[in-house]
Every structure is written in C-alpha cells, then in structure tokens.
C-alpha cells in the first residue's frame, strides 16, 4: 500500500498525450490475434503441441497476462498516466494474488 504514497509533487506531465486511433486499432488487432491463439488451444487437433497440458496452460497464462497488460497500459492509459494510478491498481492486484494464492495453497489446491 505504501508504494502509492510517493512524495507529493506537482505533476503536470499527465498531459494526456493520447495515442492515435490507429494505435488503438493496432492494439486491438494484437488482442484479437492473441485471443485467436487462445481459442486454438481448445482444438487440440489444431496444433499437436497443445496435446501437452502443461504447454497449453503455460501458453494460455502467458497470453492472458499480455492481453491484460495491453488493455491496462493502452486502453486504460496507465503507461501515459500518473504513476500513482498504476501503483494503486498493481497494489490491489498483487495483494489479491498474494492472499488468494496462499489461501488456495492452504487447501492444497496447487498440489
């Protein structure tokens, strides 16, 4: 939590240098392609490599993280905006991941 509490500074640099519409469309295209790959893993015959469950899970998790990151940084403007926003959001994400992964571990979920 405290990482959000940086020294106050008059920060005028969130001057909203929003990317162009074309940049947004490119991001959306990447997201679409990634989603396509994700769905492919469901059809095991599509790529023989997805018959291996660990490979499938690793691929899916990787693509999920990248998609999440792209939406948060581009569509939600985190990469252009004040750091405090990222810190609040990432703080919540890390806390949530931490407590729930540990709680599930106590149920031997990951075993």
């Amino acid at each position: 939590m405290s990482e959000t509490l940086t020294e106050p500074h008059v920060d005028h640099d969130d001057a909203h240098e929003h990317p162009s519409d074309w940049a947004y469309i490119k991001i959306a295209l990447i997201l679409a392609v990634f989603t396509g790959i994700e769905v492919l893993t469901y059809f095991e015959s599509a790529l023989p490599i997805f018959e291996n469950t660990s490979v499938t899970i690793a691929t899916l998790m990787f693509l999920m993280v990248v998609k999440f990151y792209l939406v948060a940084t581009w569509f939600m403007h985190l990469r252009f905006d004040n750091k405090i926003f990222s810190q609040l959001f990432v703080g919540g994400l890390i806390l949530a991941t931490g407590v729930y992964v540990i709680a599930l571990a106590a149920f031997e979920f990951w075993a």
Binding site: D14, L93, T97
Partner: peptide, 27 residues
C-alpha cells in the same frame, strides 16, 4: 497536491479494491 484529479484517483482506488472482490470470487 499531486496534480492528478480527485475523481480519477478515487476510481483507481476503487478498481484496486475490486481486484480483491473478483479475486475472492475467482478463488
């Protein structure tokens, strides 16, 4: 004080909070 808008800061605080809500439901 920080140069950022109150509303946006409140929204991000709320979204940080929502992470814990959906995290609990997903878990």
């Amino acid at each position: 004080s920080t140069g950022i808008s109150n509303t946006k800061l409140a929204m991000w605080a709320f979204l940080g909070s929502e992470c814990l809500l959906f995290g609990g439901l997903i878990s």
